[in-house]
């Protein structure tokens, strides 16, 4: 054992590797220094940051529990946004997934179209989608739902497409050979095979979307984010802590629920 690690140490410190590692560390340090200086941060602010933060925390505590009844409606709206956004995303991404899967895409052009939709929707952050949809639909939960839906399409379509690409064609043929109708083939041979990917992706994405729907309110797209902005702008820090705790609760619940669903459907 000891001999083996000696051996490794020896190789680890060979001259070229040593140079490369030094170079890597040097680059990282240089990048850090250059970036830090370029940011032109006011050192007075930086120096007072810990005190300000402590001050903030002490004003937050204790949380205003009476505020809970007031944030319940926006909290529920947040969950609604996440569920609807995920549901729309999954519905829209099914056809896109068939385009973006190599074995079901009608031709090369549709395949690349599918791939393009997947990577474009993924590269634009949900808050930017929310900005756009607030312009289109006015502020409110609808904009939030659409932002979440569009942002999620890339992710869900990509993973469902991977599920489709893994379908075992033999199972499909066997069902077809019994004289089953195309719909029955879909229900008995294809659906069972993509169901785990489907359930897994939707619940996993929902979990992510719960988090996302807590912030789209910052640009007016509904949910608890609106209440959070209001509380922060009016310096009601005890309410802020209440909201943060509520968000924590919802996030933890969604994580546990989605993990449970994924375990159930293998």
């Amino acid at each position: 054992m000891a001999a083996e690690s000696d051996d490794r140490e020896w190789r680890r410190f060979s001259p070229t590797q040593r140079a490369l590692r030094a170079l890597g560390v040097g680059l990282a340090v240089a990048a850090f220094v250059v970036s830090w200086r370029a940011l032109d941060i006011n050192y007075e602010y930086a120096a007072t940051a810990p005190r300000e933060t402590y001050d903030l925390l002490s004003r937050m505590y204790p949380p205003d529990l009476g505020y809970v009844t007031e944030i319940l409606p926006p909290l529920i709206e947040t969950i609604h946004i996440s569920i609807l956004g995920t549901a729309f995303a999954v519905l829209i991404s099914l056809p896109i997934a068939f385009l973006a899967a190599e074995n079901t895409s009608p031709n090369r052009a549709t395949y690349y179209l599918g791939k393009f939709i997947v990577s474009f929707t993924r590269s634009v952050n949900v808050i930017i989608w929310a900005l756009i949809f607030v312009v289109l639909f006015g502020s409110g939960a609808l904009a939030g739902v659409l932002a979440i839906a569009v942002r999620s399409i890339g992710f869900t379509a990509k993973l469902i497409a991977e599920g489709i690409e893994e379908i075992d064609h033999g199972q499909v043929e066997a069902i077809r050979a019994t004289g089953a109708s195309p719909f029955q083939v879909l229900m008995y041979a294809i659906a069972p095979q993509i169901k785990p990917a489907f359930v897994g992706v939707s619940t996993y994405r929902w979990d992510i979307n719960v988090r996302a729907s807590t912030i789209i309110g910052f640009v007016g797209a509904g949910g608890i984010g609106v209440a959070l902005t209001t509380s922060i702008n009016s310096f009601a820090w005890d309410n802020v802590l209440t909201i943060l705790i509520a968000i924590l609760g919802v996030v933890v619940f969604s994580e546990v629920f989605s993990a449970y669903m994924r375990r159930k459907v293998r």
Binding site: D168, G170, Q171, E173, A174, I175, A177, T178, Y188, A189, P192, Q193, K195, P196, R266
Partner: peptide
């Protein structure tokens, strides 16, 4: 016509 396959081709998850 009943067909039987080398790789069984059962729908594994049913």
């Amino acid at each position: 016509m009943g067909m039987i396959f080398q790789e069984f081709n059962l729908v594994e998850r049913l």
